[in-house]
């Protein structure tokens, strides 16, 4: 698993036609939004849903008829 993944990363980063200028522009423009979405918003949504589920289970546990 490790070897193919490493190889894949290598191939992607080599084929990545982005040069330094490109990387810089990418980091400046799109990357922050994308990462913030993936790594901040999505986990928060996950947490929220899990919280809702938990509360619902609690309510269910207290009053099984609901």
């Amino acid at each position: 698993m490790v070897v193919p993944m490493g190889a894949l990363i290598a191939i992607v980063s080599i084929l990545n036609s982005e040069d330094l200028i490109g990387i810089f522009r990418f980091l400046k423009n799109y990357y922050p939004l994308y990462v913030t979405f993936v790594c901040l918003i999505l986990p928060l949504v996950l947490l929220m849903i899990s919280q809702i589920k938990k509360t619902r289970e609690k309510v269910k546990g207290r009053n099984p008829n609901v």
Partner: peptide, 12 residues
Amino acid sequence: TLPIISLYSSIF
């Protein structure tokens, strides 16, 4: 601020 937030988010 956005790049910094995104950077720190990668602690995920």
